[in-house]
Design a binder for these strands. Structure first.
Lengths: 132, 132
DNA sequence: TAACACTATGTAATAATATAACATTTACAA
DNA sequence: TTGTAAATGTTATATTATTACATAGTGTTA
């Protein structure tokens, strides 16, 4: 059984917004969207985002500085993430492919480093954009 | 034979700085370092960085907003990059592992997307930091 | 329940990262 | 030599993220 994280008020407001969004959201776009709910300052947003990332409810798309809800119930708490990103329409999806995650989680090279975490971003054209 | 890219003056100044650095450099730290050479504005730095990334002479470490010189002569012009990052000392190395790059370059999932590019960042503790 | 530690919140200011808009110059191929 | 693409220079501004400080809520345990 996974640890239950009871989200606080701000965390819940921000998670719900991200979770409903069909696309990754940026911090300041989140801020504008939640100002009517009493969240007024960037720091309030960033603090909630940090926490949500930490507990694995959302992920940061590093190449886009944007956040999406975790789509992967078996996600190892943000320790192993992979995304596909369409460079034309900017659609982002989380990839959950057991082979891929096994391969990467077990990856080791000659450096002697033991990797505890990874983030992978694939880029290309999605089906729709390819056929245009 | 690979295409020869003759770097312009600013590109060369900035590439040389990054290439000599043992660690990834951030754009504004680059700016401060090259001001004595007549590069005065952020945009001049970002333009050179963009070009250098485009032609594969440097890579951006997305999770750190920093840039390192390409260590991998066989690197497919920035289309396929992998890095190891120590979360303690922040040492970053480019991983050049044929198996890994083949595996990822050929990766395909059910989405129907054909990936033309990827970026992978591994995190952990390097040998030194592990033994502390 | 009082004391404590921990997490979360609120607010203002500012730091760090990146781009827009516009004018000019250089490199080089047709 | 003229046309075009690439590069440069400069100012201003947009976007992303953190520091510093004060306060309030939550849950544990003595």
């Amino acid at each position: 059984m996974e640890k239950q994280h009871n989200l606080s008020k701000n965390q819940k407001i921000i998670f719900d917004l991200i979770d409903k969004s069909p696309e990754p959201l940026k911090a300041y776009s989140i801020l504008f969207n939640v100002q009517k709910k009493g969240i007024n300052a960037p720091l309030q947003v960033y603090r909630a985002l940090d926490k949500l990332v930490e507990i694995g409810k959302i992920h940061k798309i590093e190449s886009r500085n944007a956040f999406i809800a975790c789509q992967n119930s078996s996600c190892q708490i943000s320790k192993a993430t992979a995304f596909s990103i369409c460079e034309s329409c900017e659609k982002v999806s989380e990839i959950s492919n057991t082979k891929l995650s096994k391969y990467l989680s077990n990856f080791a090279d000659e450096s002697g480093m033991k990797y505890s975490k990874y983030n992978l971003e694939f880029f290309g054209l999605c089906k729709k954009c390819k056929s245009k």
